[in-house]
Computed example of a mutant assay.
Amino acid sequence: MSNSLIDTAPDFSQPIAVLKHCHDRIRQQLATLRKLLAHLPQHGADQQARQAAQAVLKYFSNAAHLHHEDEERNLLPMLDATARGDDAAVLRDMMPRLLAQHQQMDGDWLIIKAQLDKIATGTDTALSAPAVEKFVADYTAHMEQEEQHIAPMAKRIFSPVQMQQLGDAMQARRGIAPAAAPAPATAAGVDIADLRLDYGRASLDEADTLDHPVDQFAKWFDEAMTAEVFEANAMSVATVGADGKPSSRVVLIKQYDARGFTWYTNYESQKGQQLAQNPHAALLFFWRELERQVRIEGRVEKTSAEDSDTYFYSRPVKSQLAAVASHQSERIASRAEMEANFAAVEAASGGQPQRPPHWGGYRLVPERVEFWQGRRSRFHDRIVFTLQADGSWKKERLQP
């Protein structure tokens, strides 16, 4: 029998064939994704579903990004430098669209990935059919464009030396046949190098961001909610008192708008005391699933009594009672004493507590907002908005 039964991949002496082989593997994973969509309603996150989710996650979180880098960093730039005449015209038309499609598909993948993470661990069965169908359709159309125009052009105009250069770059990107490296340092039996997570789900360009940082925050926050990021509303609040010593803690944002970012707390707590001494703070949102963080710095003011009342009385009664019963940040002898205080407040209020004057809202009025998108090799994207004297916002890129 002359034909092998094993589907072997071409080697890197045939880089265009390797890229086509990657497309074939992408199509296999897209087919698995569609099968999973049909499987879940009938069988839930059973073993087959978990294995399928893990396979798709593994491919699109690793190999697919290497494939995109092959095209973005090597194939397309080499074509751009080589193409002439009609080829150059075709490339000028196609390159911006292909690169924009990469970015769009990376963003769409984040939504699907967040759902697959939960299916892979058996903690949820939700998988958005519209998101999957759009992802499959967009990827399929994208690959067809490359196979009909880009690959044939490369085969036709690249010299043998260029083909070798392309193959060498692709091989090096995958760490194939690396030079000998010293043994890695370890701590508690764990390779310290393995503790460094390499990012690469998406990118962030100045043109991708909206003109006002609160609008951009709203866009990212909505995407975090859609992706079901765990406690997307959790943020770190860092304050500094008169002694110059910083302190931080995690709270939940309750409102954001053009005026700023609002949370509620005890004004007599540690953060309340520090804000009374120094009314400036820094907020930090970290959305691991999307490999994003937002840093917000500015001055802090108290919300109106009316706003504090509105939120206080919207809370569950037991949360209202806890706010009255707790002298936040002060020492107490035991849990039993805390619970006794709670019971006393509950009895005295008749189950209808009033908002105490020492409890209410803070609003951070932003002066600097930075949007951070994780990228490979620690070469992250950072876009910062800085408030100007005339009330406008200046937008700039920062080095990682």
Score class of each variant (00 low, 15 high):
Q399M: 14
A234N: 02
E289R: 11
Q388N: 12
L284G: 08
A180R: 03
A17Q: 06
W287Y: 09
A9H: 08
A177I: 14
S308K: 03
A348D: 02
D198G: 09
D11F: 09
M225V: 01
T123Y: 10
F217G: 00
A129T: 01
P182L: 12
A185F: 12
P15M: 05
A45F: 01
H327L: 05
V294C: 06
Y264A: 01
A172D: 07
R375G: 10
Y264V: 01
S349V: 14
L79A: 07
P400C: 09
S159D: 13
L197S: 15
N278A: 12
Q171N: 15
E339D: 07
R97E: 03
A181N: 14
I6W: 12
Q270W: 07
R331C: 13
D24G: 06
A177Q: 14
A181Q: 15
K394C: 11
E291R: 12
A89K: 10
T140Q: 07
S248I: 05
D194L: 14
L76W: 04
W263Q: 02
H142I: 12
R335M: 08
L91E: 14
D138H: 13
L387G: 00
A83K: 15
L284Q: 08
L79M: 11
D257Y: 12
Q164D: 15
H43D: 01
L116W: 01
V365G: 01
L204H: 08
H142S: 11
L79W: 03
D191R: 14
W263Y: 13
Q54N: 10
E297S: 08
F285D: 00
D211L: 10
K20E: 10
M170W: 08
A389L: 10
A323Y: 03
D24I: 05
G200I: 00
E231A: 06
P10R: 05
V324L: 05
Q277M: 13
Q28M: 06
E144V: 14
N74F: 07
D222H: 12
M225G: 01
L75C: 05
P279Q: 06
Q29F: 07
D390F: 15
E223L: 15
E330K: 05
M153W: 04
A31T: 03
V250Q: 06
H65W: 05
R92H: 15
P353Y: 02
E367W: 08
A38V: 06
D211P: 03
D390H: 11
A207Y: 07
G350Y: 04
G260W: 01
F158M: 13
A63H: 08
M235E: 03
M105P: 00
E339S: 06
D108T: 06
G244F: 10
H102G: 03
A202M: 08
Q28C: 05
T209A: 09
V56K: 00
S248H: 11
A242Y: 10
L37A: 01
A38G: 13
L37M: 03
P316C: 12
A389R: 09
S334Y: 11
Y59W: 07
E268D: 13
A63M: 07
H65E: 08
P96G: 08
A389W: 06
S349Y: 13
K245T: 15
D390L: 14
A17D: 14
A64P: 00
